[in-house]
Amino acid sequence: MAVIEIKDLHFSYTAEEEVIKGMNFTIDARSTAIIGQNGAGKTTFAKLLKGLLKPTKGEILLNGTSTKDMTVAMLAKQVGMVFQNPNDQIFKYQVLDEVLFGPLQIGMAKENARRKAEQALEAVGLTGLETTNPYDLGLSARKLVAVASILAMDTEVILFDEPTIAQDYAGKERLKEIVRQLRNQGKTVITITHDMNFVADAFERTIVFAGGKMIADDDTKSVFLQKDVLEKAYLEQPDVMKLCTELGWRESVLSIDEFVSAIQK
């Protein structure tokens, strides 16, 4: 299991304005969602974690080693990131080749890469489409190809950037299942998202960013109970929780199951 320590992290693109203004936290075994308004620093943080950007001050330690001391290629073996727009990465004529690209790049043996790719395609529900051209698929399926292409790399840490965009009910359910599976395999799963219901259903821990700072970090339910934090970050409660709030419940729940059993009790 990977340990990621964020220590006094600062980053700025230009001298005038810092985008990340000093963050300290540790990412542990829990599946973690990072939420916040656009411009809060979420994507910049992801790029720092991926080594695509280097901190201007402070550091990120991955299993004790600073990302500053690792090349992007070295980090690629440990941290996988699914980008928001699959069109930014897909270039092979066949789904399977696209999914194989990452594993082969990081030096996985051919047979092993092939096995991982097949498992990854099964996890995202695209088995049978191996020889299809990814650009013949709709955007939602193409996004799942991108997810599979990262899963196949079998990295310790997996980072998702807005995975639920353009997904329908079935796609979202599939993503939630993937997050749970990865978590059970002992992987570190982190997502950046605007989808509060997705966070409520699939992530144990939630970190809130606002204006380049971390303003909350707790288990998901506790974070969504902090009204002032949500207001400051311009976020909403997940829908089930809104109902609890409306009903004036003293305690709150995140899922439909919990809600129903609370009533039936």
Partner: peptide, 8 residues
Amino acid sequence: DAQRSRGM
């Protein structure tokens, strides 16, 4: 960035 992230 996306391709470098995949080890390229």
